[in-house]
């Protein structure tokens, strides 16, 4: 019954539609939303797909598109066997853990403290912690470079002043503190320095995330826990932490994604070189150098996709860890 009716209806409508010209009000909305799609297609989707294509080619950009030579998975094989890539990956993970873990270990208690004990000055305090996040990385790098300068830096000045502290001809603190200026450019100091800058920069951001999550926990729960006999520490452990879990998942995911793509801070602090012994060279820097210094865009694309797969894998693992129960 229904089928013939619908056929006849669409049969009657179809010729009318094809004859009719599209009216301006019908196509105008698409014009209005087109800038996003055009930009996204040109600068988002196309480069994305092109880099996949590129990762299977050997290509020197100077030779033009005609210079692309299909090499199959050779680039991937090279990247996975490349010691410099291994090293940059190790650096990346080292930095990701050394700067990421303390961010959360500090941000959660800090947010809890600000939420619980600071009423009037909460926003000011959190604002100060947040400030590095909105500061230009170039400015941050300049400040830290001068702080850690070997001959004129305040860090060395402070440390050696303590080391050279003298009482009755002996230096009681010399065993712990340096007595002469440290060269912070040495490989053993590069990673901790970068990790500290990254930690310092993002701890405020995470504090804001956790603080916003804390503010959604109803006060009633803490009052009920107080009557149930929970101390402040137990309230933090039994109420706050479990209820922060969704936000911890989000914040940790963002840290993982951000830290594995770490580029700006190490790039500027090491002057784009990765520092002595490449101690500060991250995977993203390795990718950048492969593409724009070595002009090897095929390998660089392969690095990008290997990195992408690693990040995706870690995000899945993170998801599993945080969503065990709920």
């Amino acid at each position: 019954m229904e089928a013939p009716m619908s056929t006849s209806r669409s049969g009657a409508a179809a010729p009318a539609k094809s004859r009719r010209r599209l009216q301006p009000w019908e196509w105008a909305p698409y014009v209005f939303i087109s800038p996003f799609f055009i930009l996204f297609l040109c600068f988002g989707l196309f480069p994305l797909l092109f880099s996949v294509w590129l990762s299977f080619h050997s290509w020197d950009a100077a030779t033009g598109l005609g210079g692309m030579v299909w090499v199959g998975i050779e680039n991937y094989e090279f990247v996975l066997g490349d010691e410099w890539f291994h090293k940059s990956l190790f650096n990346t993970f080292w930095l990701a853990v050394a700067s990421g873990l303390p961010q959360h270990l500090v941000a959660i208690p800090l947010a809890f403290f600000a939420h619980t004990y600071l009423a009037k000055y909460r926003n000011t305090v959190v604002g100060i912690y947040f400030l590095p996040f909105i500061t230009s990385s170039v400015a941050i790098a300049l400040v830290f470079n001068s702080l850690f300068s070997r001959d004129f830096g305040i860090v060395n000045l402070a440390l050696t002043s303590i080391g050279n502290f003298e009482v009755a001809g002996i230096h009681p603190l010399a065993w712990l503190f340096p007595t002469s200026n440290i060269d912070w450019g040495q490989p053993q100091y590069t990673k901790p320095m970068i990790a500290f800058v990254v930690f310092w920069r993002y701890v405020g951001w995470n504090t804001v995330l956790y603080l916003s999550a804390l503010q959604t926990i109803p006060n009633d729960l803490y009052e009920a826990a107080t009557i149930d006999g929970a101390s402040r520490r137990q309230q933090f452990w039994y109420i706050t932490l479990p209820l922060l879990k969704p936000m911890m998942f989000l914040a940790v995911t963002m840290t993982i994604i951000g830290n594995l793509q770490l580029f700006e801070e190490p790039f500027i602090i090491t002057g784009g070189t990765g520092g002595l012994d490449q101690a500060g060279k991250t995977a993203a820097m390795h990718m950048y150098n492969t593409a724009f210094v070595d002009s090897d865009f095929g390998t660089a694309s392969a690095v990008a996709w290997v990195l992408f797969m690693l990040i995706a894998l870690l995000t899945v693992v993170n998801n599993k860890v945080f969503s065990q129960k709920d």
Binding site: D220, L221, A224, T226, I227, G229, A230, I239, L243, K245
Partner: peptide
């Protein structure tokens, strides 16, 4: 509060959601 021997039922119930 926990030593006073009182128990309270809140308007919002205040059950621990997790």
């Amino acid at each position: 509060p926990s030593q006073r021997g009182v128990a309270m039922v809140f308007q919002s119930y205040a059950l621990y959601p997790h």
